[in-house]
Write a protein that binds this DNA or RNA. Sequence first.
DNA 1: CACGATTATATGTCTAGACATATAAGTCAA
DNA 2: TTGACTTATATGTCTAGACATATAATCGTG
Lengths: 247, 247
Amino acid sequence: MSRILYRGRPDAASKPTLYRRIRLDIERRILTGEWPPGHRIPSEHQLMARYHCARMTVNKALSELAQAGLIERRRRAGTFVRRPQHLSAVLKIADIRAEITALGRSYGYQLIHCKRRAATAADRARLGADKAGKVVAIACRHSADNVPFAVEDRLIDLATVPEAATADFAKEPPGSWLLHHVPWTEAEHTISAVVADDRTAEALDIAVGAPCLVIDRYTWRSARTLTAVRLHYPGETHRLVARFRGS
Amino acid sequence: MSRILYRGRPDAASKPTLYRRIRLDIERRILTGEWPPGHRIPSEHQLMARYHCARMTVNKALSELAQAGLIERRRRAGTFVRRPQHLSAVLKIADIRAEITALGRSYGYQLIHCKRRAATAADRARLGADKAGKVVAIACRHSADNVPFAVEDRLIDLATVPEAATADFAKEPPGSWLLHHVPWTEAEHTISAVVADDRTAEALDIAVGAPCLVIDRYTWRSARTLTAVRLHYPGETHRLVARFRGS
DNA sequence: CACGATTATATGTCTAGACATATAAGTCAA
DNA sequence: TTGACTTATATGTCTAGACATATAATCGTG
């Protein structure tokens, strides 16, 4: 058998599975505009005739396309190409340490302060907590190749994350610690722009009045806030990039 | 029949399908931490015994969880809980008109200028085009309840979007027009922060030196750039919000 | 012990059926 | 014409099998 000739690039030799070929074929027609938004896709019975296969096979292809949001399926009515998503971007924001090391730069971390205290009214408002309780308040700085990269101002609710009381945030940045120790179910990012005040300017080593990108991130598990964090990035050098697939 | 009593809330009456119940059950165990990252999930055979169903049924549940990134499946080895995703956010950015009307505010649009011209060297660099060709350059302003919301500075490549030559951008904002007339396959957003220069400050009716959020968006179809747009938002009043599900 | 061959196992794909269910379209009566 | 009822149809879910395939584990050999 000559199959061994293809060692090392087996994928190039073996064609994709049938359901995958069906999926890619339909995907291609949609992306090239051959089947525009609103177009009715052949029914499962028509497709099983076209591809000479069982209904479950075309069903699997169509189910995946529906889950991916490319098509819409309605009983009795049929399957239709969805109109282009009102831009839906996938922003991949790893924790900052991972972000910096992924860029091949050396990661630096300085803890500015870390206090355990009873939640103030402002803390409760920020965490959306209704009862009194304890929190950990952290300020720290991340740097890449010894240049300030971002300053972080974080609050962790000890009622929902009691393990945070014993974590050593002098050694490990709180974002990385949380990501690896605490499961979360929901999060929210808010991105805005401000000009640097003097504390931020000093920590980031930029001029007072220079633009900063601000990311506020709230993380929940089952409707209970785990942590609230505000990150300041120097706006002229830092960029948030999101690349994504249509449509 | 008493079924009519449930009219209006039929979903509360009918329990989810079996594969969905299996999926939700496993999802719950993962999210609550009962099955932590790295935990090996029972094999399909064990699950079909537990839920008294065919293998295809548990396979459908597990396939969806794998597609959603919650679990990882390896042949012969088994199925494992993935460690929490390095945050993956879904930023929903509709076109600005849709964004404003979705907020229940009145949308206003002013075309500042719209020129059809041969691409300059700067235009070609911005579009990543290697050949000379024509472009449409547009500047316009979006407002919500008669308050400036964003200024837009856009370039459309007429070589890839020839229809843009005849569109009337005095009536319809170019973002909306493109979204509804031109299919795209890939896009990229870059978010940064700057301080307002005098032209931007005047258009947004803010002070020179005030912070602005800048979004650069490039849109492609099959590696050919369709359009490049830069949006300036007033940074103190505008926020980009992304809410998403873990993990 | 190291390394190559074999085997067992869990997932991956696929089939040819079945019944369920939502709903567009057609039918018929008030 | 309108509203209520019926019907046809496309999708939704499920079964009990089948063979394919990647690979962890085992076994055998030098």
